[in-house]
Amino acid sequence: MKEEVVTVENLRKSYETYLRRGLFARERKIVEALKGVSFRIYRGEVFGLLGPNGAGKTTTVKILSTLLLPDSGVATVLGYDVVKEAVEVRRRIGVSLTVEKGFFWKLTGRENLMYFGMLYGLDGPELKQRVQRMLELVGLEELGSSDKLYEEYSLGMKARLSIARALLTDPELLILDEPTLGLDPPSARLLRELLIRVAHEEGKTVLITTHNMFEAEIVCDRLAIINKGTIVAMDTVDGLKRLVSEDITLEMLVVLPAKVSLKQLREEISEVVSGRVEVDPTEEGTRIRVVMKPSEKEQATQEMLRKLHSMGCSVRRIEVKEPTLEDVFIELTGGK
Protein backbone atom coordinates (compact mmCIF):
# COMPACT_ATOMS: atom_id res chain seq x y z
CA MET A 1 0.00 0.00 0.00
CA LYS A 2 1.30 3.44 -0.93
CA GLU A 3 2.30 5.68 1.97
CA GLU A 4 0.52 9.01 2.11
CA VAL A 5 2.94 11.87 2.65
CA VAL A 6 0.52 14.74 2.12
CA THR A 7 -3.17 14.63 2.89
CA VAL A 8 -5.34 17.60 2.10
CA GLU A 9 -9.02 17.46 2.94
CA ASN A 10 -11.55 20.12 2.00
CA LEU A 11 -9.14 23.02 2.43
CA ARG A 12 -10.70 26.48 2.32
CA LYS A 13 -9.04 29.85 2.44
CA SER A 14 -10.31 33.39 1.90
CA TYR A 15 -8.34 36.62 1.89
CA GLU A 16 -9.50 40.03 2.85
CA THR A 17 -8.32 42.59 0.33
CA TYR A 18 -8.94 46.28 0.02
CA LEU A 19 -9.49 48.23 -3.17
CA ARG A 20 -8.33 51.83 -2.97
CA ARG A 21 -11.10 54.33 -3.62
CA GLY A 22 -9.32 57.67 -3.43
CA LEU A 23 -6.75 58.78 -0.87
CA PHE A 24 -8.40 57.47 2.29
CA ALA A 25 -11.47 55.51 1.20
CA ARG A 26 -11.12 51.82 0.49
CA GLU A 27 -13.48 49.01 -0.31
CA ARG A 28 -13.27 45.67 1.48
CA LYS A 29 -13.34 42.60 -0.69
CA ILE A 30 -13.23 38.93 0.19
CA VAL A 31 -11.39 36.70 -2.26
CA GLU A 32 -11.98 32.97 -1.99
CA ALA A 33 -8.61 31.47 -2.87
CA LEU A 34 -9.45 27.85 -2.03
CA LYS A 35 -12.95 26.40 -2.12
CA GLY A 36 -12.60 22.95 -0.65
CA VAL A 37 -9.43 21.49 -2.11
CA SER A 38 -8.66 17.82 -1.42
CA PHE A 39 -5.81 15.63 -2.65
CA ARG A 40 -3.23 13.13 -1.52
CA ILE A 41 0.42 12.77 -2.41
CA TYR A 42 2.24 9.46 -1.99
CA ARG A 43 5.86 8.74 -1.10
CA GLY A 44 8.32 8.98 -3.95
CA GLU A 45 6.02 10.70 -6.41
CA VAL A 46 6.27 14.07 -8.10
CA PHE A 47 2.88 15.68 -7.79
CA GLY A 48 2.09 18.76 -9.84
CA LEU A 49 -0.39 21.52 -9.17
CA LEU A 50 -1.18 23.02 -12.53
CA GLY A 51 -3.34 26.08 -12.84
CA PRO A 52 -3.66 29.60 -14.21
CA ASN A 53 -2.64 32.69 -12.24
CA GLY A 54 -4.76 33.16 -9.13
CA ALA A 55 -6.00 29.58 -9.20
CA GLY A 56 -4.89 28.86 -5.64
CA LYS A 57 -1.59 27.06 -6.25
CA THR A 58 0.58 29.31 -4.10
CA THR A 59 -2.05 29.45 -1.37
CA THR A 60 -2.03 25.65 -1.18
CA VAL A 61 1.76 25.56 -1.15
CA LYS A 62 1.95 28.20 1.59
CA ILE A 63 -0.52 26.31 3.78
CA LEU A 64 1.49 23.11 3.40
CA SER A 65 4.68 25.04 4.19
CA THR A 66 3.06 26.31 7.45
CA LEU A 67 3.27 29.91 6.23
CA LEU A 68 -0.48 30.40 5.98
CA LEU A 69 -3.37 29.20 8.09
CA PRO A 70 -6.42 27.74 6.33
CA ASP A 71 -9.92 28.91 7.26
CA SER A 72 -11.11 25.31 7.46
CA GLY A 73 -10.21 21.83 6.34
CA VAL A 74 -7.27 19.67 7.28
CA ALA A 75 -3.79 19.36 5.81
CA THR A 76 -1.19 16.96 7.12
CA VAL A 77 2.40 16.23 6.17
CA LEU A 78 3.60 12.76 7.19
CA GLY A 79 0.73 12.63 9.63
CA TYR A 80 1.50 16.01 11.27
CA ASP A 81 -1.14 18.69 11.12
CA VAL A 82 0.22 21.82 9.41
CA VAL A 83 -1.66 24.06 11.86
CA LYS A 84 -1.36 22.27 15.18
CA GLU A 85 2.05 20.64 14.64
CA ALA A 86 3.72 23.25 12.45
CA VAL A 87 7.18 22.80 14.00
CA GLU A 88 7.13 19.03 13.31
CA VAL A 89 6.05 19.72 9.72
CA ARG A 90 8.88 22.26 9.31
CA ARG A 91 11.42 19.64 10.36
CA ARG A 92 10.33 17.43 7.46
CA ILE A 93 9.95 19.80 4.53
CA GLY A 94 12.20 21.70 2.15
CA VAL A 95 10.69 24.74 0.52
CA SER A 96 11.42 26.95 -2.47
CA LEU A 97 8.86 29.70 -2.99
CA THR A 98 10.57 32.07 -5.38
CA VAL A 99 13.76 31.55 -7.29
CA GLU A 100 14.79 35.16 -7.82
CA LYS A 101 15.17 36.16 -4.16
CA GLY A 102 15.22 34.79 -0.66
CA PHE A 103 18.96 34.93 0.03
CA PHE A 104 21.37 37.50 1.42
CA TRP A 105 22.93 39.44 -1.43
CA LYS A 106 26.21 40.13 0.36
CA LEU A 107 26.84 36.48 1.19
CA THR A 108 28.20 33.85 -1.17
CA GLY A 109 26.09 30.87 -2.18
CA ARG A 110 28.01 28.65 0.24
CA GLU A 111 27.69 31.15 3.11
CA ASN A 112 23.97 31.46 2.49
CA LEU A 113 23.59 27.69 2.68
CA MET A 114 25.75 27.51 5.81
CA TYR A 115 23.53 30.11 7.49
CA PHE A 116 20.22 28.51 6.52
CA GLY A 117 21.55 25.07 7.37
CA MET A 118 22.36 26.26 10.86
CA LEU A 119 19.03 28.02 11.15
CA TYR A 120 17.37 24.72 10.28
CA GLY A 121 19.36 22.85 12.93
CA LEU A 122 22.41 21.45 11.12
CA ASP A 123 25.84 22.02 12.59
CA GLY A 124 29.49 20.99 12.56
CA PRO A 125 31.03 18.70 9.91
CA GLU A 126 27.57 17.41 8.94
CA LEU A 127 26.55 20.93 7.90
CA LYS A 128 29.73 21.50 5.87
CA GLN A 129 29.35 18.15 4.13
CA ARG A 130 25.68 18.72 3.34
CA VAL A 131 26.39 22.19 1.95
CA GLN A 132 29.22 20.88 -0.22
CA ARG A 133 27.08 18.00 -1.44
CA MET A 134 24.16 20.26 -2.32
CA LEU A 135 26.41 22.71 -4.18
CA GLU A 136 27.74 19.78 -6.20
CA LEU A 137 24.29 18.30 -6.74
CA VAL A 138 22.80 21.48 -8.23
CA GLY A 139 25.90 22.13 -10.34
CA LEU A 140 27.04 25.36 -8.68
CA GLU A 141 30.37 23.82 -7.74
CA GLU A 142 30.93 22.74 -11.33
CA LEU A 143 30.15 26.29 -12.51
CA GLY A 144 32.68 27.65 -10.01
CA SER A 145 29.95 29.78 -8.41
CA SER A 146 29.72 28.36 -4.88
CA ASP A 147 31.95 31.09 -3.46
CA LYS A 148 30.62 33.96 -5.54
CA LEU A 149 28.44 36.60 -3.89
CA TYR A 150 24.74 35.96 -4.40
CA GLU A 151 24.37 39.41 -5.95
CA GLU A 152 26.53 38.20 -8.84
CA TYR A 153 24.36 35.16 -9.53
CA SER A 154 22.31 34.74 -12.71
CA LEU A 155 18.67 33.69 -12.34
CA GLY A 156 19.62 30.11 -13.19
CA MET A 157 22.21 30.05 -10.40
CA LYS A 158 19.70 31.55 -7.95
CA ALA A 159 17.23 28.82 -8.82
CA ARG A 160 19.85 26.14 -8.28
CA LEU A 161 20.75 27.62 -4.90
CA SER A 162 17.09 27.74 -3.96
CA ILE A 163 16.72 24.03 -4.70
CA ALA A 164 19.96 23.34 -2.82
CA ARG A 165 18.52 25.06 0.27
CA ALA A 166 15.28 23.11 -0.05
CA LEU A 167 17.27 19.86 -0.10
CA LEU A 168 19.78 20.89 2.56
CA THR A 169 18.20 19.15 5.55
CA ASP A 170 17.44 16.00 3.54
CA PRO A 171 13.68 16.57 3.87
CA GLU A 172 11.10 13.93 3.10
CA LEU A 173 8.87 16.38 1.25
CA LEU A 174 9.99 19.07 -1.19
CA ILE A 175 7.56 21.91 -1.83
CA LEU A 176 8.50 23.96 -4.87
CA ASP A 177 6.52 26.89 -6.21
CA GLU A 178 7.29 27.41 -9.91
CA PRO A 179 10.93 26.34 -9.56
CA THR A 180 11.88 26.84 -13.21
CA LEU A 181 10.03 30.09 -13.85
CA GLY A 182 12.13 32.32 -16.08
CA LEU A 183 15.06 29.93 -16.32
CA ASP A 184 17.14 29.32 -19.42
CA PRO A 185 16.62 25.85 -20.96
CA PRO A 186 19.83 24.22 -19.61
CA SER A 187 19.10 25.32 -16.04
CA ALA A 188 15.45 24.31 -16.31
CA ARG A 189 16.43 20.91 -17.68
CA LEU A 190 18.98 20.35 -14.93
CA LEU A 191 16.42 21.15 -12.26
CA ARG A 192 13.80 18.91 -13.83
CA GLU A 193 16.22 16.00 -14.01
CA LEU A 194 17.22 16.66 -10.43
CA LEU A 195 13.62 16.58 -9.22
CA ILE A 196 12.92 13.33 -10.99
CA ARG A 197 16.11 11.85 -9.55
CA VAL A 198 15.44 12.84 -5.94
CA ALA A 199 11.90 11.49 -6.17
CA HIS A 200 12.48 8.25 -8.04
CA GLU A 201 15.95 7.33 -6.78
CA GLU A 202 16.02 8.82 -3.28
CA GLY A 203 12.35 8.27 -2.50
CA LYS A 204 11.59 11.89 -1.72
CA THR A 205 8.16 13.26 -2.36
CA VAL A 206 7.88 16.41 -4.45
CA LEU A 207 5.03 18.88 -4.72
CA ILE A 208 5.57 21.30 -7.56
CA THR A 209 3.42 24.08 -8.94
CA THR A 210 3.85 25.11 -12.52
CA HIS A 211 2.31 26.81 -15.53
CA ASN A 212 4.60 24.96 -17.83
CA MET A 213 2.76 22.10 -19.59
CA PHE A 214 5.93 20.61 -20.98
CA GLU A 215 7.47 20.53 -17.54
CA ALA A 216 4.36 19.08 -15.96
CA GLU A 217 4.25 16.33 -18.55
CA ILE A 218 7.92 15.42 -18.14
CA VAL A 219 8.31 15.74 -14.39
CA CYS A 220 5.01 14.90 -12.74
CA ASP A 221 3.82 11.40 -11.95
CA ARG A 222 0.39 12.80 -11.16
CA LEU A 223 -1.19 16.17 -11.68
CA ALA A 224 -4.03 18.15 -10.21
CA ILE A 225 -5.47 20.92 -12.33
CA ILE A 226 -6.67 23.71 -10.10
CA ASN A 227 -8.86 26.56 -11.25
CA LYS A 228 -10.53 29.31 -9.21
CA GLY A 229 -9.79 27.55 -5.95
CA THR A 230 -11.14 24.17 -6.99
CA ILE A 231 -9.42 21.05 -8.25
CA VAL A 232 -11.10 20.30 -11.54
CA ALA A 233 -9.19 17.12 -12.39
CA MET A 234 -6.50 14.91 -10.92
CA ASP A 235 -4.76 11.96 -12.54
CA THR A 236 -1.64 10.87 -14.38
CA VAL A 237 -0.80 12.83 -17.52
CA ASP A 238 -2.26 10.05 -19.70
CA GLY A 239 -5.32 9.85 -17.51
CA LEU A 240 -5.91 13.58 -17.84
CA LYS A 241 -5.54 13.40 -21.60
CA ARG A 242 -8.20 10.73 -21.73
CA LEU A 243 -10.59 13.16 -20.07
CA VAL A 244 -10.53 15.25 -23.23
CA SER A 245 -10.47 12.46 -25.74
CA GLU A 246 -10.61 8.70 -25.32
CA ASP A 247 -8.91 8.13 -28.66
CA ILE A 248 -5.60 8.79 -30.31
CA THR A 249 -4.87 9.03 -34.01
CA LEU A 250 -2.04 7.15 -35.65
CA GLU A 251 -1.03 8.72 -38.92
CA MET A 252 1.33 7.16 -41.47
CA LEU A 253 2.64 8.37 -44.81
CA VAL A 254 3.45 5.45 -47.11
CA VAL A 255 4.44 4.87 -50.73
CA LEU A 256 2.42 2.06 -52.31
CA PRO A 257 3.69 -0.32 -54.94
CA ALA A 258 1.73 -0.08 -58.22
CA LYS A 259 -0.04 -3.39 -57.63
CA VAL A 260 -1.70 -2.23 -54.35
CA SER A 261 -4.89 -0.16 -54.60
CA LEU A 262 -6.19 2.22 -51.96
CA LYS A 263 -9.21 -0.04 -51.36
CA GLN A 264 -6.99 -3.05 -50.85
CA LEU A 265 -4.76 -1.11 -48.47
CA ARG A 266 -7.76 -0.03 -46.36
CA GLU A 267 -9.06 -3.59 -46.16
CA GLU A 268 -5.69 -5.04 -45.21
CA ILE A 269 -5.14 -2.44 -42.49
CA SER A 270 -8.68 -2.86 -41.15
CA GLU A 271 -7.94 -6.55 -40.63
CA VAL A 272 -5.20 -5.81 -38.08
CA VAL A 273 -6.62 -2.83 -36.22
CA SER A 274 -9.99 -2.39 -34.61
CA GLY A 275 -10.28 1.42 -35.01
CA ARG A 276 -11.63 3.52 -37.86
CA VAL A 277 -9.27 3.52 -40.90
CA GLU A 278 -9.01 6.30 -43.49
CA VAL A 279 -6.79 6.16 -46.56
CA ASP A 280 -6.18 9.27 -48.69
CA PRO A 281 -3.80 9.96 -51.54
CA THR A 282 -1.59 13.05 -51.09
CA GLU A 283 1.20 14.64 -53.13
CA GLU A 284 3.83 13.05 -50.89
CA GLY A 285 2.30 9.59 -50.85
CA THR A 286 -0.66 7.78 -49.32
CA ARG A 287 -1.80 8.90 -45.89
CA ILE A 288 -3.28 6.31 -43.54
CA ARG A 289 -5.15 7.55 -40.45
CA VAL A 290 -6.31 5.14 -37.78
CA VAL A 291 -8.32 6.28 -34.76
CA MET A 292 -7.79 3.90 -31.84
CA LYS A 293 -7.71 3.49 -28.09
CA PRO A 294 -4.40 4.51 -26.46
CA SER A 295 -4.03 1.00 -25.07
CA GLU A 296 -3.97 -0.42 -28.63
CA LYS A 297 -1.24 1.93 -29.81
CA GLU A 298 1.80 -0.31 -29.39
CA GLN A 299 0.35 -3.51 -30.80
CA ALA A 300 -1.58 -1.86 -33.62
CA THR A 301 1.48 0.02 -34.79
CA GLN A 302 3.54 -3.16 -34.92
CA GLU A 303 0.81 -5.07 -36.77
CA MET A 304 0.36 -2.28 -39.27
CA LEU A 305 4.07 -2.03 -39.97
CA ARG A 306 4.28 -5.79 -40.46
CA LYS A 307 1.32 -5.73 -42.82
CA LEU A 308 2.65 -2.77 -44.83
CA HIS A 309 6.03 -4.44 -45.10
CA SER A 310 4.44 -7.66 -46.40
CA MET A 311 2.53 -5.62 -48.98
CA GLY A 312 5.75 -4.01 -50.18
CA CYS A 313 4.85 -0.50 -48.95
CA SER A 314 7.58 1.82 -47.75
CA VAL A 315 6.80 3.90 -44.71
CA ARG A 316 8.02 7.49 -44.81
CA ARG A 317 6.57 8.92 -41.64
CA ILE A 318 4.71 7.75 -38.54
CA GLU A 319 3.02 10.18 -36.18
CA VAL A 320 0.82 9.67 -33.14
CA LYS A 321 -1.60 12.46 -32.54
CA GLU A 322 -3.09 12.67 -29.07
CA PRO A 323 -4.52 15.50 -26.96
CA THR A 324 -1.79 17.56 -25.38
CA LEU A 325 -1.77 18.56 -21.75
CA GLU A 326 -2.39 22.07 -22.97
CA ASP A 327 -5.62 20.87 -24.65
CA VAL A 328 -6.64 19.30 -21.35
CA PHE A 329 -5.74 22.41 -19.38
CA ILE A 330 -7.64 24.74 -21.69
CA GLU A 331 -10.65 22.44 -21.81
CA LEU A 332 -10.82 22.07 -18.02
CA THR A 333 -10.04 25.64 -17.02
CA GLY A 334 -12.22 27.17 -19.72
CA GLY A 335 -9.25 29.17 -20.99
CA LYS A 336 -8.71 30.44 -24.50
Binding site: T66, L97, K101, G102, F116, L119, G121
Partner: peptide, 22 residues
Protein backbone atom coordinates in the same frame (compact mmCIF):
# COMPACT_ATOMS: atom_id res chain seq x y z
CA UNK B 1 12.76 43.22 2.01
CA UNK B 2 15.38 40.61 1.22
CA UNK B 3 12.73 37.95 0.62
CA UNK B 4 14.23 35.74 3.32
CA UNK B 5 11.30 36.08 5.75
CA UNK B 6 9.42 32.90 4.68
CA UNK B 7 12.66 30.91 4.89
CA UNK B 8 13.33 32.26 8.38
CA UNK B 9 9.82 31.41 9.47
CA UNK B 10 10.00 27.79 8.32
CA UNK B 11 12.90 27.16 10.71
CA UNK B 12 11.73 24.41 13.07
CA UNK B 13 10.98 26.68 16.04
CA UNK B 14 8.21 28.99 17.09
CA UNK B 15 8.41 32.06 14.86
CA UNK B 16 8.96 34.46 17.77
CA UNK B 17 11.77 32.26 19.08
CA UNK B 18 13.48 32.27 15.68
CA UNK B 19 13.25 36.04 15.33
CA UNK B 20 14.45 36.89 18.84
CA UNK B 21 17.02 34.16 19.43
CA UNK B 22 18.78 34.51 16.10
Amino acid sequence: WTGTLPYMLIAPYRISVTLVMS
